[in-house]
Each structure stands twice: as C-alpha cells, then as structure tokens.
Design a protein around this nucleic acid. Structure first.
Lengths: 228, 228
DNA sequence: ACAAAAGTGTTTTTTTTACACCCATGA
DNA sequence: TCATGGGTGTAAAAAAAACACTTTTGT
C-alpha cells in the first residue's frame, strides 16, 4: 500500500473571437458556505489507466472534444503541494484521505474554443474559460505554477501543424499570424512571417479568397496533413 | 488507499579515461538460481520526500557523490511497464505487492566518473559503469526507453558550465571539445568550437600549460563560476 | 628529424532581422 | 474617395559552416 496518490492536471488553452488566449478553469466549493476557488481540471489517475489515456479522459469529460494536442510537460511532487488550508478544506470534502500526498503530472492541451461546450464535472460547479491575464493568482494547490510551466512548454512546441489545427480548414495568413502572436504574446513581422510560412510545403494556397470583407480579400490557405 | 506506487529511476552518465560515455547500471538477481538482469538505479519515492530530494538520495546512496546535474525529464506510466515475466519475478522477491502498478519519474545525472566509488545498494548485487553501446537491450522494466529518453534530453541541455564540471578544475580546450564530442556522439570542428568557447566570458585562460606532453603543450583554462 | 597535438583566420553560406509602399474591396 | 487590412522584396547583420597550415614539445 502506497499512500502516494497520482493525479493529472490539464492546462487546456483555447482562444476565441475576442482574440484572447484563455485557459479552462473549473470552479469548486471549498466549504459548505459557498466559498469557492478556481483550479485546473484534474483528477486522480485510474488504477489501470495509461497516463495519456487518463489525460484524454479527464480532458474529454470536461470539454467533450477530441484534443488537438496533449502533451506531458512535467511532474509536480512537492509533498506540501496540497497542504494549504483552502486545499485541505476541499480535499476533506471530496477525498477519503485528504492528508495523503498527491503527486500530479501536468498535461497541456490546445483546443479550438468554438468547438467547446463546457460542462462541469462532478466536483466542479462550473467550468469556464478565463483570460490568461485575469487568472487568479490563488488557484488551488500549485496550479499557478503548473499553468505557467505549461504555457512556457507550449510556446516552445508551437509549429504550423499545431497552430493551423486551431483555425478553420481554410484560413488566411493573417489569421495564422494573429494566432501565433496571441500564443507567443509577441508581435511578429508580417513579411518575415510570410517568408517562413512560404517555406512550409504543407501550407497550401487555395484558389479561394475571403468574401465580403471591406478591404482587399485575403487568399485562403489550407494545411495539408501528411496523411492526406 | 491508492495502489499506484511512485518510483524514481536515475540515468547516471559518466565518462572516464578511456573516453567512453558510460551509464551506471545495477545488476540484480531475478530468481533464486542466480539469473540476473541489469537495471537503472531506482527506487520507490519516500512517503514524504520531495522528488528531487528523492532522486538525490537514490543517486547519492549509489554513488556517494554530490551530483553535478540532476534533472527530471519525463514520467513513465504505462500500466504494463512492470508486467514482463522477468520483472515480475524480481518484484515478487522484493516487493510486498508485486502486481501493483509503478509509475516512475526519470531523472538524469551527469557525474565525474573518477569521483565515483561504486557500492551496490540493498537489492543490487553490483553497480557498474557500462559503455552506452554495450548496454543490453533487455534492461529491467522499460529502462531502455528511459535511458534513451534521458540521453536525448541531456544532449539538449549541454552547456559549458555543465560540461566543464566534469573536467578537472584546469583543463585544455581539447579536453573540453573531446568531452562534447563524446556526449553528443558527434565530431566538432576545432576552430569553430574554439571560436564559440572564446565568446564565453566564464571560460578563462590561465597562465599555466600542460606539462611533460610529447607535443606542444596546451594552455589550461578554468571555468569561472558566477559565485566566485 | 620526426611524431603528435596545439593553435590560429578567412571565406562562404545560411539564417535572421529590419523596414515601407501599393492594392483590392466595401462602405 | 476613403478606410481597412492584404500583399510584396531587398539589404544588412548575425550566426553557422567549411577549410589547412604552422608551432612547440619530447623522443
């Protein structure tokens, strides 16, 4: 019998029409008085469940979509990570052994927010997208740390395939650049950006153009997946 | 009660006079008939032990040196990873619940082999340095995978501080280059290598030279730690 | 004098960065 | 005709790669 519990916490990032990068947080009560706190969606790993499968299960149960990207980025094993008063308060409500240590594996996902229909899972009273710069600095457990680590990891992993997956199947280069800028939180040079994109043989110019925009319509591009 | 056990496995790399990169493996009996197998040094995490502390403890108990570098690189959580016949045979001898799942965190260390005095820990009948290309493809559990992942991670982490730590406090640039070549398993251009090194203000030329070599003696350099 | 490793610069190529104007459309 | 975002190329700078001969020492 080992008193170390293993959990997975998912940093689920999405972006939407208002051009903000958001993270999916759940809201949960930490006592009987309706006090609540926000947390990353996460849960204990199933007894016989592979970690990636577990991450997918947890993510899917919270977002009901297939993930576009899901990657393990770190383990958080500070023995004190669940000992904060608020965290203990919550654990006492939901876990048989609230004092047992929980080591958690961080997974990061990047999803199309428009595809997402949020529904809160068992102990979550709400699941909502929160702009990154509006995220409380007092998330449950060490979730602020996990979130920051996850974002940093993601920024190092960005590539055209991953990013185009967040766009409609036909997209403009400005949409793509804009998305990179949001994800990296950094302005990019338009001409240099297009020079790079043009070297990627998987990004293909279609015959179509934007319709009904009050300016010169942009060409639409598509990402050619290697299995196509 | 969670039946998931958490362990740490250390990929401890060292190199020595014969200019080979080696990994520290332990040898353990897998039955009563003196059949044995090799494995990475690893053990269960202490109940209340921080992961890095645990990695240091396990490494230290096996090598009796302070580590120069120790970094978490991945988690291995395949529920089947301990189910191989040989592995079960070993687990039956040493664990109360051999069928319980074990999730392991991979740590990588890089040490000066000359400082190392191997002594086998409890269940290890031997601890020895093995050349990388002579490592059995049948290490315990998923240790071949862990080893390969660790090496790849390490190669991406190399820098002058880390590498000079493996050398005597005064070293020649050829020694340094040679060490990079061993670690990267790749030849480097001498002039370009020295050009890079010369840009690093922490690598300092001393007044001394090699003594008693049958060729032009090389200058000795030293690495200036930021705390000096 | 020879063997062995030390030491040294220049050129080419590639990659990255900086930068400004005309175009097509809808309102 | 105007406002809006679309689209385009070149030059400079920086980084990376290729490449060969002379020097100093011990034997």
């Amino acid at each position: 019998m080992s008193p170390i519990n293993l959990s997975i916490d998912c940093v689920v990032l999405g972006f939407d029409e208002d051009q903000k990068l958001k993270v999916l947080l759940i809201k949960k009560f930490i006592n009987e008085k309706n006090d609540y706190q926000h947390a990353l969606p996460g849960d204990l790993v199933g007894l016989n469940e592979d970690l990636l499968t577990g991450a997918q299960r947890i993510l899917n149960s919270l977002t009901s979509i297939d993930n576009l990207f899901l990657d393990q980025f770190s383990v958080f094993g500070d023995p004190e990570r669940t000992n904060d008063k608020k965290d203990q308060s919550w654990l006492k409500m939901y876990r048989k052994e609230p004092k047992e240590r929980v080591v958690t594996v961080g997974y990061i996902a990047l999803v199309k927010m428009e595809d997402y229909i949020p529904h809160a899972s068992s102990f979550a009273i709400d699941a909502e997208w929160v702009e990154l710069n509006k995220v409380s600095s007092e998330l449950a457990f060490d979730h602020n740390l996990i979130l920051n680590n996850g974002i940093e990891y993601l920024r190092n992993q960005l590539d055209h395939e991953l990013v185009t997956n967040l766009l409609p199947s036909k997209f403009t280069l400005s949409q793509l650049q804009n998305l990179y800028e949001i994800l990296l939180d950094q302005k990019l040079d338009k001409r240099n950006f297009r020079k790079n994109v043009s070297k990627d043989i998987l990004i293909i110019k279609t015959d179509e153009k934007q319709q009904g925009v009050a300016h010169k319509p942009a060409h639409l591009y598509t990402y050619k997946n290697s299995e196509n």
